[in-house]
Design a protein around this nucleic acid. Structure first.
Lengths: 247, 247
DNA sequence: CGGTCGTTTGATTACGATCAAACGAAGTGG
DNA sequence: CCACTTCGTTTGATCGTAATCAAACGACCG
């Protein structure tokens, strides 16, 4: 594999944190058959209702998962960054129950469904790693239910900014609580169940209160402690420590 | 296994819909070591933050998963009925990230974490079945994010009533869209991100509009078609068809 | 029979939505 | 190069849904 995209290594390293892998396990990940494609900003990776034929690994850029309601409203359900499997679930469920769209220009590896299943079910250590990966996604969904269901606008926005910061840092894509938010205020609004107008006011207010600094799309969480409080944020649900005991 | 609770069979039958099982696979499920306990209404099965030591299978009754926010608000994140694993994820994640409480008197089988892991990772067909089970849970979480994030009060309540009806029927616990709702309006409110007062008004309105009939806690969805519309409900996300191809 | 819990209804408030418009930056074409 | 469009952000004014506050009622239970 001479020209394998470097993000494959990042993904494998994340898997190793989930389950103890042997060298051959690592190779199994890296030798997955796939076709790599560049997707422009706003391009679709999966569409709700699609029959699953492949599983997408995000190699660069950002993406989000969403659903459209009968009234035409959009709810963003999750955010994804380089190194993440964007629709592993669909390989097992057969049909996509959400759409996934890129936020930025992105490179995506599409792995045939059969290869994913074979990898995932052929080896206990790998199964464990991938399973835990989907379970952490699941934990994030649960937290999002809480976020949009029971927090006020200020806490919702603060919470998502904290989550994004933590996840970016865990992935090695940011540090010191400074990062480029790869989405518009409208998309942010659709992620927290508010309107873009209101999100704008909340961001302004968080700035005035000295919790964040903004410059264009760059977010700097100046006061992490107070921001965590404002967002009722406790990173435990991210399971960044999700240990790797038995292989 | 002379006196195994009959719900074990129901659970195994659900697993068979997810993945083709052999007789020995079925036996593996049914011979899981476990301790069975009766839990009174409102009793806790798991508490947020608990170190996972076992995995709970609900043998009878109803339960719900929830989180408490810093402000003291409660968000109910999922509902569970007999035959469902209530916290399979915790066995793999190590720590509970939500609490689970019974709605009614319930019988619960606690299976040691190690036994679950061994079962789940020791055999591809079983791994597949259990994994799909957790992925469907995950799909329901996604739908709930949409429900609380982007639907108005009427649709939220109608949606959850539709979901519960469908799931009960799929589990063989109800038919003809008539069922006993095992929760108070306050709990219903915490599941849809509203207040109990408002849920009460919405229920009344759905009754007056001829979509449902209520008698105490018994819900009868009189006009399923209009109710689906009102709740923007499309059962696809429940993946009740989630087929079982390769074993 | 009193007490608790859940449901129901009414009155008022408030948070965030909606409507509307201006502004700035980036991109396009004459 | 500048007019012009487009897209996203920002701010202001008003509206409406659901929250809050309050109280009565009914059912069940000890």
């Amino acid at each position: 594999m001479p020209d394998l995209h470097p993000t494959w290594d990042i993904m494998v390293r994340r898997m190793e944190r989930r389950s103890a892998l042997t060298e051959s396990d690592r190779q199994a990940f890296k030798s997955l058959p796939h076709s790599q494609r560049r997707v422009g900003p706003g391009g679709h990776i999966v569409r709700d209702g699609d029959k699953a034929e492949s599983c997408a690994l995000l190699l660069s850029g950002f993406a989000y998962r969403y659903k459209i309601t009968g009234e035409g409203g959009r709810q963003i359900i999750s955010l994804h960054m380089a190194g993440e499997f964007v629709d592993l679930q669909h390989s097992f469920l057969g049909t996509a129950d959400t759409s996934v769209q890129t936020l930025t220009e992105a490179e995506v590896a599409f792995i045939p469904k059969a290869a994913v299943e074979e990898l995932a079910l052929g080896n206990a250590a790998i199964a464990r790693a991938l399973w835990i990966d989907t379970l952490i996604d699941s934990s994030i969904f649960r937290e999002w239910v809480v976020n949009v269901g029971r927090r006020d606008s200020r806490a919702r926005v603060a919470h998502i900014l904290c989550e994004f910061s933590m996840r970016l840092e865990a992935a090695g894509l940011a540090k010191n609580h400074v990062y480029e938010l790869p989405m518009t205020q409208e998309q942010l609004a659709d992620a927290v169940g508010l309107t873009s107008v209101h999100v704008n006011r909340v961001l302004k207010q968080l700035g005035e209160a000295g919790l964040i600094d903004r410059d264009k799309r760059t977010i700097c969480i100046v006061d992490w402690k107070r921001m965590r409080e404002a967002g009722d944020f406790n990173e435990r649900y991210l399971h960044h420590d999700a240990a790797a005991p038995a292989a």
